[in-house]
């Protein structure tokens, strides 16, 4: 049986996915989960790990939730609508 990946590894992989596609693709939590499970394989990564990894990323401030007609996870940035 394959050894599970750690929350940190999943978080790192997710962060990279979001960073590498910034401005081109908006990720929903479910998209990140599907991509992570695809990357590591079902035997090494599961839903709960993904959920924890997202929580880790958001609690540490590396990703933030955003809302544009649906909720996404993004690298923190100044939004288009913001006033000073």
């Amino acid at each position: 049986m394959a050894e599970k990946v750690t929350i940190e590894e999943v978080a790192e992989a997710m962060y990279k996915m979001v960073k590498d596609t910034m401005g081109m693709k908006k990720w929903k939590a479910m998209d990140l989960q599907k991509a992570a499970i695809e990357l590591f394989g079902e035997d090494r990564c599961d839903k709960n790990l993904c959920k924890e990894a997202i929580k880790e990323l958001v609690n540490s401030g590396r990703l933030v939730y955003t809302y544009f007609g649906g909720s996404y996870l993004e690298i923190p940035h100044k939004e288009g609508a913001a006033n000073d």
């Binding site: 401030g61 939730y65 909720s71």
Partner: peptide
């Protein structure tokens, strides 16, 4: 419409 502000850790 702003889409990014919130409290730490929450998306809602």
């Amino acid at each position: 419409h702003g889409g990014i502000v919130g409290v730490m850790g929450y998306g809602g």
